[in-house]
Design a protein around this nucleic acid. Structure first.
Lengths: 109, 109
DNA sequence: ATTAATGTTCGTACATTTGCGAACAATAAT
DNA sequence: ATTATTGTTCGCAAATGTACGAACATTAAT
């Protein structure tokens, strides 16, 4: 079976850019690394790890959530944050396709 | 041989965020897709594809270049742009590590 | 010396992002 | 009812990003 290089479709371009933008801040990468390192991740745990105001942490979490990369659920009075597994896999594939774009390309500079 | 999950090092966190940020705009993704689709990519070719002023295109190219993802070389009077293969592979690995972070993780929400 | 071709840089305007503390909301405990 | 706990939202300020046209730089051609 042949592998055909698929260019990213317009909707995929938008989505990968959207997700990349959400990943485009060190604090948000830190949050993801931290989420991956723990079983239980309440907001407070995340906030404790980061040298910034809770309102700022909350905003970064909101950006990750709006991009679909994480999810949060209320466990009154706390909020538990987790990776959004399904969208994370979608993101993995989108970025994989992106990085494969140049695999069979000869260079001219 | 065992595979040990390596958390991203601080310098890697910065770098992946830096690169993600550069990828975080649809136009810049379009530029990369276009670069991948052609053998020869002069500035003019890229500009012709995009519905925006050349100064804007030039800025987007500068962002990609500053992030190390592409390179440009002058072929007077034109400028040829290409992927930066070496850094592109570095980026691929950084993002791959990022997306692998949650591979062995059970969900709690 | 002028003119043409190709891009970059500059100056400006507007929008978005980042960060903070204060105020607020929701629930639980007293 | 009050108070305590946990996060979110609001309002603000500063910084950064996006886009444009004009001006500029470089080289080639006339």
């Amino acid at each position: 079976m042949e592998t055909v290089k698929q260019p990213l479709q317009p909707a995929e371009v938008e989505m990968v850019a959207r997700m990349a933008k959400a990943l485009g801040h060190p604090t948000r990468i830190e949050i993801l690394v931290f989420l991956a390192s723990r079983d239980s991740c309440f907001f407070g745990n995340i906030h404790d790890e980061l040298p910034m105001a809770k309102s700022t942490v909350s905003q970064h979490l909101k950006e990750l959530k709006d991009a679909g990369l994480i999810q949060g659920e209320i466990e009154t009075p706390k909020v538990r944050y987790c990776i959004h597994k399904e969208n994370w896999e979608i993101a993995r594939k989108l970025f994989s396709n992106l990085f494969d774009l140049f695999d069979w390309k000869e260079m001219h500079c």
